[in-house]
């Protein structure tokens, strides 16, 4: 549990960070909150020769409103996200989900950018961002580009990030007023990854679902959008048969690993239940 030696860099601008990462190549890793990278380094499963610490870049911090979007700087911590009235009002599901991430000590240090950019299927924010139709801004030696969260994840720890690129901010469209939302996460204990979790954002009219998006955490090597499950509930009043259908459709795309959280069958089963419960709770608070 002792890391190998490495060089430490603390650039003051995104441009400097990008330059460092491009120049140093694969031997360099950007450091945000460090909750994933540092333990991997202590186990020597990651042995970067260079760490490029992003904490010195003021431009990567903060939450601002741009038209109908909330722009969240990549180095904004989960704690800062929780402290934001804007987030709590405009997209309460983010607030709710951030509270389910580990414990206060972790949230003081853990960042939004690190959470979504690492490609760890156990992280909660990626499925949330897909559900909310967020876009990630990536800055690299080739310039700046925006990638939809839904297109970002390619495999466990594999993302659309190109060498030298840094995820600098997340842009999240504000959901419709009166939308219903819920993030249902089954975990064994505080600090654990989800056994299965489901995010739901929906709108209702006259007791029927008008729009719906469903995201799934930790039931596949990437976060998932349960598109068929979401389709199945549109136009319904979420009666028992519909819920069952939606849960089955969601379970059908799950491919979790068997681990101490349970065998595959269990994780898929409770994944379906998380979908059901999230739908019910979201519907109950939709106006």
């Amino acid at each position: 549990m002792i890391p190998g030696s490495f060089s430490y860099h603390r650039p003051a601008s995104v441009a400097d960070a990008v330059k460092l990462l491009s120049d140093l190549g694969e031997e360099a890793r950007p450091l945000a909150g460090g909750h994933s990278l540092v333990p991997m380094m202590k186990l020597r499963l990651a042995t970067p020769a260079h760490l490029v610490d992003l904490h010195g870049i003021a431009a990567l911090k903060g939450i601002s409103r741009n038209g109908n979007n909330l722009i969240i700087g990549a180095m904004t911590t989960q704690h800062e996200l929780l402290a934001s009235d804007e987030v709590a009002k405009a997209m309460p599901i983010l607030h709710e989900a951030a509270l389910l991430i580990a414990d206060p000590q972790v949230r003081y240090r853990g960042t939004i950018g690190g959470n979504v950019a690492n490609g760890d299927p156990g992280n909660d924010m990626p499925a949330l961002m897909m559900t909310l139709e967020a876009t990630y801004r990536l800055e690299g030696p080739g310039g700046t580009r925006d990638v939809a969260a839904a297109d970002f994840y390619q495999g466990a720890y594999f993302t659309a990030l190109e060498p030298g690129e840094i995820l600098t901010s997340v842009s999240v469209p504000v959901p419709a007023a009166g939308h219903g939302y819920a993030y249902e996460k089954l975990k064994r204990k505080v600090g654990d990854y989800a056994t299965a979790a489901a995010a739901v954002v929906l709108t209702m009219s006259g007791g029927k679902v008008v729009t719906c998006a469903i995201g799934l955490t930790n039931v596949h090597e990437t976060p998932l959008l349960a598109i068929d499950a979401a389709k199945a509930v549109i136009g319904t009043s979420l009666d028992a048969a519909t819920l069952k259908k939606a849960a089955a459709a969601a379970s059908a795309i799950m491919a979790p690993a068997a681990d101490a959280r349970g065998p595959v069958e269990y994780r898929k089963h409770v994944g379906g239940i998380m979908v059901t419960r999230a739908l019910q709770r979201a519907a109950a608070i939709a106006k």
């Binding site: 414990d103 064994r188 204990k189 505080v190 654990d192 681990d259 101490a260």
Partner: peptide, 16 residues
């Protein structure tokens, strides 16, 4: 041995 850390070896916190 598949329970070599507190990620897998159940150590309850005050919450649980």
């Amino acid at each position: 041995v598949v329970t070599g850390s507190f990620m897998d070896f159940f150590m309850p916190t005050a919450v649980e």
